[in-house]
Amino acid sequence: MKGLISFIVGLLFALGLGLSGMTQTHVVKGFLDVFGNWNLNLMGVMIGAIAVHSIVYHLIKKKESPLFDSKFHLPTKKDLDGRLITGAAIFGLGWGWAGICPGPGIVSLVSGDLNIVVFILSMAVSMYAFKFYEEKFLK
């Protein structure tokens, strides 16, 4: 059942991204183009998503466990370390450069666009490289 839920979540997530404009790189870059032709529309995606999810989170946060698992798997880290800030900064540079973040990148693979395929392969290689770096230097 967990698998079925995951599949449905993925499907809905992709529809939300597509309908909102997140899969179009020029729309995303327009949102980040604060000093140029700033297109604030994408703010709606975050407002809509956070409005719904924060209400649901508030309603269920006192529950002992989710419906299909024995416990919640939520992040427990609280520290604001250099790793968080540096990582977010590096991610932001890549996100702005191409106008693609991981979710829309994966959804856009179905367009068959070679640019997107290269982006996702490159992202996967980089994730492997990170794991190597983490083993060697961060542990």
């Binding site: 409005a51 989710p66 919640f72």
Partner: peptide
């Protein structure tokens, strides 16, 4: 359109949390 798309994403990540107890973080 962005608000509606965002709300659908909100429903999706809420289903993931309520049923599977997971954060929907793509990376």
């Amino acid at each position: 359109a962005a608000l509606i798309g965002g709300a659908i994403i909100g429903v999706a990540v809420s289903l993931m949390l309520v049923f599977n107890g997971r954060v929907t973080g793509i990376s």
